[in-house]
Amino acid sequence: MFTQTTNRRGVRSRLVGLLAGPHGVDRYTELVDPMWTSEVRATVVRVRRSTPRSVTLWLAPNHPVPFVAGQYLTVTVEVDGRRHTRCYSPANAQGDQVIELTVARHDGGVVSEYLHRAARVGLTVGLSPAAGDFILPTPLPRRLLLIAGGSGITPVMSILRTLQEHWHGGEIALLYYTRTLADACYREQLAIMPDVTVLHGCTRGPGGDVEGHFDERHLTAAMADPDAVYVCGPTALAEAVRRHYPAAVAESFAPAPLVIPDTPAAGRITFSRSGIDVDNDGQPLLNQAEAAGLAPQSGCRMGICHTCTRRKVHGVVRNVTTGALSTEDDEAVRICVSAPVGDVEIDL
């Protein structure tokens, strides 16, 4: 009888891999079942749409996917025949076998709009190992203030749930900002979470515990003199918190402002592995590669996850978020935030 256990043994066999030819055994076994593969994949086992702009998915992976509360995973989804990769933070406690992801729908977002519209039980997605430094220190702070904006609640929920499971014993407060109360994911779960002070802030309507966008009064209302502050959300929220609490640990899911070059775009880009070269239009290499018909793997598209890292054979590129120049040959660059300056050859 052919079982998943049998398949995993086969996957590990070099002989089977050789007999399977150039595509490898995975390309054949996945035709029978997408989960019969040595790659990490997960099946959606439950779907919930609890707010107008979000969808929560529960994923059962075919291999363990360990993570520390607060980290993110890269998730690969096929949309209209093309694979797209994005970064999402689990909302469940670390150590759980089933992974819980809540995805906020962004207008024009290929993956978020697809999942919000079409996610269903049985959908298969790809997963990559956990990454990120938005994690609590050891020993744990006794007085912890967590601040979340929008979908930034997901890593915060993972931290809260992990602390609840292992009994933190200290004081915990949460400031959670959304457009309206109806947009607040996990509102019911937070309301019954013991030993956590939760304050909601509504930025586009009444009904919150604090009014408007973050300011110092909110910080005082939630917790005076915290030992540690962690904030996850839009860049504006992270920056506002750090102005009042410079030591705050911040994670932002919005790209930094682009640095506009002083001179017009010039030169040509050579995608050496594909045998394609194009005129440089000044956009990041990832955009220009896609415009040329290539489909390089990418993730966050803002220089965070490093999924799109490729080797720059030669030439100069400018980081569009910092303005820094990369001038060395044979240098790894993140093509989502690297714009060519003159002629550039990239191993793609």
Rank of each mutant, 00 (worst) to 15 (best):
I269P: 06
K312L: 15
T85L: 09
L174G: 05
V45Q: 00
T138W: 13
A173F: 02
A250T: 14
P129Q: 11
G17R: 10
V79Y: 05
D80M: 10
H218D: 13
T6V: 13
I99W: 03
K312D: 03
V40Y: 04
M157R: 01
A131I: 04
N287W: 09
T51Q: 02
I135P: 03
D279W: 04
P257R: 00
Y186A: 02
P61Y: 09
A254I: 00
H306P: 01
V16L: 15
E113M: 05
T270D: 00
I159D: 06
L115M: 05
C202F: 00
V231K: 08
G201S: 12
A236M: 06
E188C: 00
L19P: 07
E171R: 10
P141Q: 15
G10I: 12
D107V: 11
H106C: 03
V110C: 06
A60S: 07
T85D: 13
S158R: 02
V241F: 06
N62M: 12
D80K: 12
L115E: 07
Y176F: 14
Q283E: 15
V55L: 04
R8H: 14
T203G: 01
R273A: 11
P284I: 06
C305W: 03
T56F: 03
A291N: 11
L31K: 15
H213A: 00
L145C: 12
T56K: 00
A228M: 14
D343L: 13
V16E: 13
Y230M: 14
V229I: 13
Q189F: 00
E188R: 14
D330S: 13
G108V: 10
C300G: 08
L140P: 12
L219V: 01
S38H: 12
G267F: 06
Y186P: 02
P64T: 11
T309R: 14
T3N: 10
P34V: 12
T3K: 06
M157E: 02
H213W: 01
D215T: 00
G201Y: 01
G342W: 10
S128D: 14
P155I: 04
G169A: 09
V77H: 07
L294I: 09
G323Q: 02
E328R: 14
R41M: 08
V68H: 13
F271N: 01
R268F: 02
Q283P: 02
I99E: 10
A191M: 01
M193C: 04
V278Y: 05
L237N: 04
S112T: 15
V278L: 07
D107W: 03
A324N: 09
D183V: 02
R117D: 14
H63P: 01
A224L: 08
L294H: 06
F67H: 13
E113I: 05
V75H: 03
V317W: 06
G150L: 02
T263I: 04
A339T: 05
L286V: 03
P246E: 05
P296N: 08
E39A: 15
S252N: 01
L258G: 10
R9N: 13
F2A: 07
A104G: 15
L136V: 15
A42Y: 01
I346A: 05
R117F: 01
R8V: 12
Y88N: 11
V40C: 14
H244L: 08
V111I: 14
A42K: 00
H106L: 12
I159Q: 13
V241K: 09
I346C: 08
D133K: 11
T5A: 15
A118E: 14
S13W: 10
A173R: 04
F271R: 04
D262I: 02
I147Q: 10
